[in-house]
Design a protein around this nucleic acid. Structure first.
Lengths: 154, 154
DNA sequence: TGTTTACCCATGATATCCCATGAACACCCA
DNA sequence: TGGGTGTTCATGGGATATCATGGGTAAACA
């Protein structure tokens, strides 16, 4: 399974291009669509990113779990409407659309933040602030991470 | 399942490279990603280390797929954002990034400390102190390890 | 025909690979 | 049992490839 790890800060050139981190591209290389999918976050001034496979699974989830999720269905509808497929060029760069840049208040560089099966794109300084907050809270609460047993069902 | 045992102290050369202990590499050799994953500990001046399979289990446990239940996601998100995939070279070495070195206050050598399914990387002197403390406390409190019966009677 | 989009080439910095060395360990054989 | 030998492993340095980045140019679109 493809995992997005670590955080990379890359520059946005005057054409609006930015290199997708090589490891992210590598994680998506088995997929048919050679590029990434972006949509604006509802909860933060950042961009949500993922591979096409994740969108397909989101689509499955929206149809399968509709017992709970009148809410979730609305949200995934919003996501699909807002999402953009951005193929990368031969050098591994994508062009960030205007409204995307605006939503994340991006100026001259962006931070690709790995989140496991997805990632986010932040204005680097803004992410630094958010990260510090979460890290401070984590120190207090001594969180326990839910680890699923290796082969078994929950 | 991969198990990390024992403690190894290896040198960091001027390029920031350090040999991953051969037994650790052997434990991870069945995996697709030939390398280790490192992230900064929240609670101690050391580096947490594991194999990619462990990160995948973390990803499953965090249920990133259900993108709107943001409870424990913050914590695991922090790990994913901080984590680095470090593939080893043909000689079995990895390059320790700057901020990683700084967090553990590493100078010229590091201690790989086996922790079962994960391991830690310490500045050797710092670990010696911590180990002594833990050992002293263990003498007093007589901790018990929960052992699951393998299938037969005890 | 003007504008935008996508491809091509160039470049510097960084990281990856390749070879060499030395020490520790295990193994073999007398 | 002791010496010799071979292999594995940690370590060091030089050469090469990869990656992020910048700009130019041709094709697609309106």
């Amino acid at each position: 399974m493809a995992l997005f790890l670590s955080t990379f800060v890359n520059k946005v050139d005057k054409k609006g291009r930015v290199s997708v981190p090589a490891t992210f591209r590598a994680a998506l290389s088995p997929q048919a669509f050679q590029g990434i999918v972006l949509y604006r976050s509802f909860t933060a001034p950042c961009i949500e990113g993922c591979g096409m496979d994740f969108m397909e699974r989101l689509s499955d989830g929206a149809q399968t779990f509709d017992a709970f999720s009148a809410e979730q269905e609305n949200i995934s509808a919003l996501i699909f409407a807002d999402a953009r497929q951005l193929p990368w060029d031969p050098e591994g760069r994508i062009v960030l659309p205007e409204d995307i840049l605006a939503h994340a208040a991006v100026a001259e560089s962006v931070a690709f933040v790995g989140k496991g099966q997805t990632f986010q794109i932040w204005e680097p300084a803004a992410y630094k602030v958010v990260e510090a907050e979460i890290r401070a809270r984590a120190l207090q609460s001594r969180p326990t991470l839910p680890l699923r047993p290796k082969g078994g069902a929950p």
